[in-house]
Write a protein that binds this DNA or RNA. Structure first.
Lengths: 110, 110
DNA sequence: AATATTAATCGTAATATTGCAATAAATTAA
DNA sequence: TTAATTTATTGCAATATTACGATTAATATT
């Protein structure tokens, strides 16, 4: 029905899914990579970086901000965005734990 | 329009988004964790593990298989699923490169 | 105050995703 | 062959996501 039955799963599983979802659009990946690349706050020029309209970028930024992965501070008529290091580290630990699960040779049984 | 404009982004960004998307549902996360946990192929009993209907699980398995993260081999009337180690390692490198981007103190400028 | 600049929000259309009942397909067992 | 078992597919309804034009809100500039 278009709605994930999140009550069936653990908090950890739901958390991983929420992070997965936010990385599940290339525009949000590009925004995050850009923030890392300039290694500072970007004030304003995010719309020119990507080929999407201003309301679309604004919406993607909102999702990243809702998850806490970026911070946005008002600076006059502009808003300065940057990575939230604490939250990024926190997210990275959760995702890395999931990605680093180990398998052994028995996996090849079929 | 519900359709991501993937032509605007790099192959790497689109690849990350595709992996993000597949991890963006807790059922798929749970399936993968179960396959790691039992550390072998699971033949049949995936539907009983999760609280979702058989066609729903089948659909999630198909998406994981389409991305190559799991393998499914027919064994009589059952199908045995397991992690595809090569593809998992490949995916892990791509995602880890993305997650391990580094930030410095300037990030806190705002 | 009037205008310009910038970002957020609203409204809407197009498409995607999720979930499952019903059914089909494939193999096994009797 | 017939029935049972298991998984995949189809079709559909409900909801979510993506994108953007139009508008609003907020500050800055003149």
């Amino acid at each position: 029905m278009g709605l994930a039955k999140s009550e069936l799963f653990t908090d950890q599983q739901n958390q991983i899914a929420v992070f997965g979802k936010v990385f599940g659009h290339p525009a949000r990946v590009a925004i995050l990579q850009h923030l890392f690349k300039i290694d500072a706050c970007v004030c304003g020029d995010l719309v020119n970086e990507l080929g999407l309209a201003q309301p679309t970028i604004s919406q993607h930024l909102k999702e990243l901000r809702n998850l806490g992965l970026i911070k946005g501070d008002v600076d006059g008529t502009k808003v300065c965005y940057c990575i939230n290091p604490e939250r990024w580290t926190n997210m990275k630990r959760i995702m890395t734990d999931f990605l680093n699960q180990d398998f052994n040779s028995k996996m090849d049984c079929c």
